[in-house]
Design a protein around this nucleic acid. Sequence first.
DNA 1: GGTGCCCTGTGG
DNA 2: CCACAGGGCACC
Length: 274
Amino acid sequence: MPELPEVETVKQVIRPQITGQSIRSVRILHEKVIAYPGPDEFAERLRGKTITGMRRRGKFLCFHFDGGERMVLHLRMTGHLLVLPAEEPVEKHTHLILNLSDGKQLRFIDLRRFGRFWLLRKGESDAVTGVRKLGPEPSSKKLTAVYLKGRIGTSRRSIKEALLDQTVVAGIGNIYSDEILFTAGIRPKRNCAELSDDEWERLAETIPRLMAFMIRKNRIPAEDYTRSRGREYRNTPYLKVYGHAGEPCPNCGAPLEKNKIGGRSSVFCPNCQK
DNA sequence: GGTGCCCTGTGG
DNA sequence: CCACAGGGCACC
């Protein structure tokens, strides 16, 4: 479900509601969502901790506690977070509840149960979470045409697969890879090794600009987010190709085409994208 | 690299 | 009924 802009929204909505709170108790309703360590240790170590901050890295969320421990969360396809009063009914697919000192609860809800939590000790490596392998953020000044060409310029993969590789750039998913390639005028199936310097430049320019635009458009007041139960905060009105297969291209009017790349669907304009 | 899998729900 | 869904990983 969420890619970088949506995860950023979750962070912006949730962070002010939980920072400074301490965790009174932990309720794990489905142990599977706790990837590391075991569920008992996870709950035991969280209890009594104070939340000092919350950050995003790629599609990961990282909760910081006093004493230096941190909890890492990946929402995967359908995971989301809500802060609700303890008396609110617990909805279906709720897998983890943190009882906070102000009487509210931080809840993790995930229909498909793909989302995962990790709890790391102070200074413990995040190799286990995958955060350590992430490539630069789209907003990073490290993300240049020279970087992209050097990192994947000889790869025999398609450019779409490379953009989905979190070790190349962090945070791009199936929606925004299609949007980026449309804006940059490059077909998703194009082989990385055949892209021109000009095309690497266009990618390096498009990735941060489009992601920043989507983050800005995705902002939502916490009340609206909570009222819609974390469901209606997506960039759908701004997507030019994703979800629009068969419809006219917004640039040239030619019907947008859809194909499969590495098991993921991909929408593009056969006319505007070379 | 491709494929299957982890899950549940929805839409054709 | 089957195909598909915004993610990521293990396995040939």
